[in-house]
Amino acid sequence: MNAPISEDDLHAFADGQLDSARLVQVEAWLASHPERRAEVDQWRAQTASLHQTFDRVLDEPIPTRLLPPARPARWLDGRKAAAVAWLVVGGVAGFFLRGQSAGDPAALTASNSLPRQAAVAHAVFVPEVRHPVEVGADQEAHLVAWLSKRLGAELKPPKLDDAGYRLIGGRLLPGDKRAVAQFMYEDAARKRLTLYVRPDAPKATETGFRYTSEDGIDVFYWIDGAFGYALSGNTGREDMLRLATLVHRQNEK
């Protein structure tokens, strides 16, 4: 019934990589094979000796040449300084979907304030218990019509139900020049995300994803068509990237 115990099972046992069912079987088998048990113990002792020898490196101070300096573009000897700014390091986490427009200073200036504004709006409304949104998702048709009219272009809240987040609703906010929209989402654990949509993005400057952390709020932002988007939340960088990808994909349709 049970598969015979293999050499691989013994290593996986020593390395703690067996599932609990197999673990029990291997343990029982080892009880009647003391010479193999001794070998497994030796492997574990090897691993322990590696930790004993090298774990001290973890506590050593990191040499400054390996650390990002206060002026981020000079990280790593400035060898890549022209091409690589910290924004791009952010790109290690949040990659650009398309070519970057780093050469366009107007686009950068315009989008720089986008994550900041989005994070502030996020911080203001996410803790709201009674009035997190102006118009609830139960009146979605009205919400879409209203925000589209005020922002001057058709605007639909993306669906994030597949990712476990349901739309609570949306609200209108004052932006730099004109109105902006905020949609709010919530998961089963009541964690909230906001999507900030600004209609005054400079034309023809589509960008890929950019990532920043604003006072501890993760913000992924990008420009697509006439809108600048910023997704804010605290659900972890990778989770946020996945959600931002979902939003972006739906806007493309």
Binding site: L50, T53, F54, D55, V57, L58, D59, E60, I62, P63, R65, L66, L67, P68, P72, W86, V89, G90, V92, A93, G94, Y211, T212, S213, D218, G236, R237
Partner: peptide, 29 residues
Amino acid sequence: MSSQAAIVAEIPRLRRYARALTGRSDTAD
């Protein structure tokens, strides 16, 4: 955690592995 912090947080692990792999601390860094 910001992406900057995420990468910096990996540096000690990278240094430990590189030290064990190369056997020399300057080569490792």
